[in-house]
Every structure is written in C-alpha cells, then in structure tokens.
C-alpha cells in the first residue's frame, strides 16, 4: 500500500508491504542507516526514533502505522546551527564507543530534555532503561546528557540576557 511519512521534515511517499517494519522503511527504503536494529523482541532499543515527538522502538512499529505521521531520526538531530547539544554532549563526555546504540540513545535523550530540561541522574537512567549499551556501562551516557542539559541551560541564560 502507499504511504507518506515525513522523516526529518521531508515527506516520503513509497509503496510498501503492510508488514514492512518502520526500521526497514527508514534503512532500506530511505537509506537512512543511522537507525540500527539489534534484537527481535523490542528489548534492546538501538532502533529508537521519534514518532510524532515520542521515542519509539522502530522495530516494533509497522511502516504503515507511520503513514501521515512525523518521524525524526539521528540524521535529523543536527540543524543548520550545527550539532544538537545531545550530540555534542556524547562527543564531549565519551558517551559512545562502538556507536551502535548511540543513535537510539540520543533520540531518547533528546526527547527527555525536551520534556525535562534539567533531569537528575536517576531520571536520565530511567529514560534510557529500555536501551542496552554494551560498551559504556552507561556512566558516560549519563554525563553526556547532563552536559547537554548544561549547554542548553547556558544557551537559555544567554538568550535571556540578550533579551534583557
């Protein structure tokens, strides 16, 4: 069937089988391979993307269910102004090693900061508790998100000072 999904701001229309998983739609149809997959049972979370702003496991969403909706992937994180603070935080604080879980982690953490600009360490850990990282022991992911929150806080203060 024909679907139109808006991915990172651009509408894509494709003819797909109903059983096509969203992760394969992104990776195979749109060649956006930044979103990975790592299990068959919705447990690992390396496939997380945002669907209408909410982090979801794209291995457990059918592409047809995303018809008419908005998807944001890791490829849509950086903007014209450069890296998203979450990306910068992961780079600054060594929040990744092999990089395989990183896109999913960053999409979840971006959504967390959008909802809660100043999360505690526990809130960060809860937010990523459905996603497995085998390299970092999570410590530096937590630090990365904290650093991103701090960058955004500093940016807000700067804007407020300019406005004042």
């Amino acid at each position: 069937m024909q679907i139109t999904v808006t991915v990172n701001g651009a509408a894509h229309t494709r003819e797909v089988e109903p059983r096509l998983l969203l992760v394969h739609f992104l990776r195979d149809e749109l060649r956006l391979t930044g979103t990975h997959w790592g299990c068959d049972t919705s447990n690992c979370g390396v496939c997380v993307v945002q669907l209408d702003g909410q982090p979801v496991k794209s291995c457990t969403v059918l592409a047809v269910m995303a018809d008419g909706r908005e998807v944001r992937t890791v490829e849509g994180l950086a903007g014209a102004a450069g890296l998203d603070p979450v990306q910068q935080g992961f780079s600054d604080k060594h929040g990744l090693q092999c990089g395989f879980c990183t896109p999913g982690m960053m999409m979840t953490c971006r959504a967390l900061l959008d909802r809660n600009p100043d999360p505690s360490d526990t809130e960060i850990r809860v937010a990523i508790s459905g996603q497995i990282c085998r390299c970092t022991g999570y410590e530096n992911i937590v630090r990365s998100v904290r650093a991103a929150a701090e960058m955004e806080r500093a940016a807000r203060v700067e804007v407020e000072e300019v406005q004042a």
Partner: peptide, 9 residues
C-alpha cells in the same frame, strides 16, 4: 511495565 520507550507506545 516494560520500559519507558515501550510505554510510549
């Protein structure tokens, strides 16, 4: 129940 991302869906 499950995890936060699964709970979104």
């Amino acid at each position: 129940i499950a995890d936060p991302v699964v709970r979104n869906r």
